[in-house]
Design a protein around this nucleic acid. Structure first.
Lengths: 228, 228
DNA sequence: TCCAGTAATGAATAGCATTCATTATTCGTG
DNA sequence: CACGAATAATGAATGCTATTCATTACTGGA
């Protein structure tokens, strides 16, 4: 029979407890993934019993949602501070692409959660987390729509489809980063995506050729004028 | 005590048994998804015991892989028959995009498996199924590379990135089809993607218009000079 | 100090993939 | 046809985890 004198620490506030749980969940999920990261692990890391987690969260899924929500919130904050300072729709679009690539390549564990586990939709109850990638898509779509209105972008483009292509492309790049592990060359990829989106892949030989012949003709004319 | 006279059906061949199991798995997975579709359900549908499945497959995951492999194989067969008959790199690219959209929109259950469950990678052992989407990407990349070589496409485009953008875009469209259920307008989406990939989104209205008027003016000047 | 009300606990529950000792069937051979 | 290894099928038992809930521990006001 041992009598132990423990300094009784007061219970943490509701907010502190939630923060502790979410942080432990983040650590465990990032390290092991959603499936393999168990509630027992998270509880152990947070220094509490499993049951306690269920007082604050609907379940494992809800916990993941909150982890992801906080991750995206930080990115959104950053973006909202930076975006307005950038001039030009094309440049802002380019910044958004680059920002996502940075987020992907700077946190492999989170990248795994996003590419692997965010997708687990439940047709009955769409979760908050599902709309997070979509939010970034909305930011991009806003730029494109504004660009169309101003005439910088063609009026026949579908902003939604273009955003899907950018967002989907970024996701595939993230996914292949997760599976093959090769580092992402952020600037190179940013350039490739931006260039493709803005200019497409078709060569405009016809235009170039007609311009070239025009130049030739003007040069000849100029020569004649000189000699006259 | 009942004496029942059952016509003893001979055991099916290994191949038949595998086909039965895979077909039952396809039905169950398509109806319930990978997580919720249980081995018991599949065994019941196939009219066998759960244990039997494990004689033929590594486990639930391996079973899904085979279901997906067969689904993709059918598409590949179809594509390989059709593709060579189409003239022009841009047109073949367009066909591939349309073919994938058709596959997506014609089979919602399978679409769910692809967008939701195919992604469950295990960093330790990459599965066959993971490379299936990639295969289609390779077909597209081939067209793009050939198009670059022939001068139809700009030489500074990155085929891999463009394929990621097309493939990723298609996946996002599939995903949003799964979550919001709205039917996909195959032709409209095919057009939007093709147009974006080929021509980009930047309007060259201003440039074209100003160049055109410049050309006109220069031509008039040149004519006047010539006649002088 | 006491006592509702609130929070935390962790053993019990439940669901499901996977295993494996047991039973049934097949088929080559005497 | 009969026998008996070899092969296939079975389904109860196992193990793992998320989730629940009766019980216990704390807290803050009267």
């Amino acid at each position: 029979m041992s009598i132990v004198a423990l300094t009784k620490v007061p219970r943490p506030s509701k907010e502190q407890r939630i923060d502790t749980i979410v942080e432990s969940a983040r650590k465990v999920f990032c390290a092991c993934g959603f499936e393999k990261g168990s509630i027992v692990d998270i509880a152990a890391d947070a220094g509490i019993a499993e049951g306690t987690i269920y007082r604050y969260f609907d379940g494992k899924r809800g916990l993941l949602d909150e982890v992801l929500r906080r991750h995206y919130a930080a990115i959104f904050d950053d973006v909202q501070q930076t975006l307005p300072a950038i001039e030009g729709y094309g440049n802002r679009l380019r910044y958004l692409i680059r920002r996502v690539l940075l987020a992907i390549s700077s946190n492999r564990g989170m990248c795994g959660l996003i590419t692997r586990d965010l997708r687990q939709f439940d047709t009955t109850q769409p979760s908050l987390a599902q709309s997070l990638n979509h939010q970034i898509g909305i930011l991009m779509a806003d730029e494109i729509k504004a660009g169309i209105k101003r005439g910088d972008f063609r009026s026949d483009v579908s902003p939604g489809i273009v955003c899907d292509m950018i967002g989907g492309g970024l996701e595939l790049i993230a996914w292949s980063y997760m599976t093959n592990g090769k580092a992402i060359d952020v600037d190179k990829v940013t350039n490739a995506i931006s260039r493709t989106v803005l200019s497409g892949i078709e060569s405009n030989n016809a235009t170039t050729a007609s311009l070239a012949s025009l130049v030739t003709r003007l040069e000849q004319t100029a020569d004649r004028l000189d000699s006259a």
